[in-house]
Design a protein around this nucleic acid. Structure first.
Lengths: 122, 122
DNA sequence: CATAGTGTTCTATAGATATAGAACACTAAA
DNA sequence: TTTAGTGTTCTATATCTATAGAACACTATG
């Protein structure tokens, strides 16, 4: 089931990138499958609560990355199936569960993951 | 040991926020301890490879969050000790290790963690 | 007191981001 | 053919982000 949420306008991350991220994640998690149609651009405008031009900028990026295609007069469609290893999803869910139980917030969590990623040699 | 890196000017995330994140993470990981002096603003300018005003914007944010204080003519100092549970760091390192071994990139990883965080009810 | 090394403030400019509004182009179905 | 529902393009405007450059203020030390 596709879950698209309003973006966070105060996070500092550009709105169009937050939209790209959400749609990409839905594809990665298998909630959006190849061939499936996205909501219309005007529906996305409502869903994300941003201007249509911001929607178009995000979709343009997703097209450039080859994840979706547009058909004028019809709609946008998912191209690639990017289903990831279920084991990975489980591992992420476990970490998220642990951090939530320890009262971490999302922002702190993301910062820590990024730093560990960049600082550790594996 | 403090590890501060040049920011990624093409990530879309504002430079001053990337700087805030790096310094905050160093404090969280215990690499910057309470009372410790940060590099000078002009050293930070070189380290992060951005303009001094961008450094000041980041430090202003860290001051507002109560993580650092400035003393004019002297320097910036860490206020809070935010050392986190070692168990949490280990868990994050394990996840990062697993994802790197499966050829995930950092960007995809962060997007997935964020989506799982927002979509799962724990 | 003079100086070097700190942080601080200010102005000007360029580029990126986001919105609003309007119009246009294509597709499918009545 | 007409119409409703799609995507597409364009202009104008406001705000945020980042840089450059200059000057100023405070602290410690010789």
């Amino acid at each position: 089931m596709v879950m698209l949420r309003k973006i966070d306008k105060h996070s500092g991350v550009p709105a169009y990138l937050q939209i790209v991220n959400q749609i990409k994640a839905e594809i990665l998690l298998g909630n959006l499958k190849a061939g499936q149609q996205l909501p219309t651009v005007r529906e996305l405008e409502t869903i994300f609560d941003v201007n249509i031009n911001t929607i178009l900028k995000a979709l343009e990026r997703l097209k450039a990355e080859g994840l979706v295609v547009s058909e004028q007069g019809i709609g946008y469609f998912v191209v690639k199936e990017l289903n990831i290893d279920a084991e990975v999803v489980v591992a992420i869910k476990q970490l998220v569960s642990k951090l939530k139980s320890k009262q971490f917030d999302l922002y702190t969590t993301l910062v820590l993951v990024e730093e560990v990623w960049k600082n550790e040699r594996f």
